[in-house]
Simulated scan of single mutants.
Amino acid sequence: MKREATGHLEITSTAGEPVRAFVPDPLPPLPPLKLGRLGLALHDRALLACGRLDGVASLLPDPDLFLYAYVRREALLSSQIEGTQSSLSDLLLFELAEAPGVPFDDVVEVSSYVAALEYGLTRLASGFPLSSRLLKEIHAVLLARGRGVDRQPGEFRRSQNWIGGTRPGNARFVPPPPGRVDSCMAELERFLHAEGDLPLLVKAALAHVQFETIHPFLDGNGRLGRLLIVLMLVDGGLLRQPLLYLSLFFKQHRSRYYELLDAVRRDGDWEAWVLFFLEGVERTAAAAVDAAHRLLALFQADEAKLTVRGRSGVSVRQVLAALRQRPLIGIPQLAARAQLSFPTAAKAVERLVSLGIAREITGGRRNRVFAYDSYLAILGEGADPL
């Protein structure tokens, strides 16, 4: 059965200008989704890819290594979609010592994304439900610093916002009036906790569109809408670790992404959106598995270099292990992580430089910073600013 628009327009006034704001219908869609045989097969492949991803981290010497770097890669990609120009190295340098020269406002936004994700996961792990209240708390962390600090962090908006255009009257899309945000989010929360036969991946696909359509905050909606996906998958037990992130897929297919959101609102074409989402899940999970395997191969190859090119002492291996934990780091931090003296750590990292494993990036004699370039290259794929 063909659907029509998935909501209705309400005439509201902003700065004296009449505006047609879109108020979405509650989820799930009516009539129910029909993905067909191809859609069900795609869902099964996406689910299988998630299962492989959930198990791949155990192959690494320390699963937290992959998690640390992958979360930061996602933070970077999600923020780039919103227009930031930071690189992965910018973020790691900022976290290392708030190093001068990086684009401060941009890198603060990326760093805040990491903090917001970690906060949300910690709250979920403590038993707190995925809810409007939790999303507000996460939003407060997301906008605690940088450009969004004056955009009502942690509060649903009390004024009209819009997407595209210079004002609501010529915008590409106008979300619900502020007086409807609470009720729309309450409906979304009910959907998140409703029992039913919708698979979790499909439910996450629907919830993401609904959140983006409501646009409940003055700023940060895109980043929080992408965070909602991984929070749902972890909370629902599909993933034990937050390793599935769709920001690169959305970044690579931005035009299609926005076209499909519009098609859902205008024509009720949920099926096309869900198929796109499931394709993104399958591709993204497979790419993450591939990255983990390549990291494992890199670690093994670099360990072999230490053996093939002459016997290396324990201190060199300890410093290499510390570089895996923090692939961009200074000698004091290396020494602390490897539990070595400063001179011993300095000598060991120079050995890694001579083997082509590490590289000094400042060119100075003091406060030197070393990069594990091959590791950063794997994690930085697709993470160039738009």
Rank of each mutant, 00 (worst) to 15 (best):
P24H: 00
V56E: 05
T362A: 00
R265H: 01
L124E: 06
Q339M: 02
A348W: 02
T284W: 00
A286C: 04
P32I: 12
D384V: 09
A144P: 10
Q300G: 15
R190S: 06
P168N: 11
V56M: 13
Q339G: 03
L278G: 04
R283D: 00
D197S: 09
I229M: 10
G146P: 02
V314E: 07
E17A: 15
F276H: 03
V202F: 03
L239G: 10
A371G: 08
G222H: 04
S341T: 13
G146E: 06
I357V: 15
R190G: 09
E271Q: 10
Q210W: 04
F104Q: 00
L134C: 05
P178L: 08
I81V: 07
A301Q: 13
A292F: 11
P26W: 04
G380K: 12
A41Q: 09
D262V: 09
F342P: 15
V234S: 10
V316P: 04
A75S: 10
A285R: 03
R311N: 10
V234M: 13
L48Y: 04
L38H: 11
V108D: 11
D105T: 00
G330H: 06
V230R: 01
V319Q: 02
H208Q: 11
D269K: 06
H253D: 15
L244R: 08
G237D: 14
P327T: 06
K347A: 06
D262I: 05
R223H: 04
A338Y: 02
L76H: 08
H8E: 13
D269A: 08
R256Y: 13
D235S: 06
V149F: 10
D267H: 11
T6A: 13
V19P: 08
L227R: 00
Q325L: 13
P26N: 01
R52W: 09
A321C: 12
L88H: 09
L246M: 09
I11P: 05
L228S: 07
A286E: 07
N170D: 12
L91F: 01
Q210I: 00
D384C: 12
L323T: 09
A272W: 12
D219W: 01
H215Y: 00
D262R: 07
L200V: 09
R157V: 02
K251G: 11
R72G: 09
A285N: 07
G222L: 07
K34A: 15
A125Y: 05
S354W: 12
A287Y: 08
R123C: 07
Y372T: 08
P18R: 12
E282W: 08
A116F: 07
S255C: 15
G16D: 12
R368P: 06
A286K: 14
V349S: 01
K305F: 15
A46D: 04
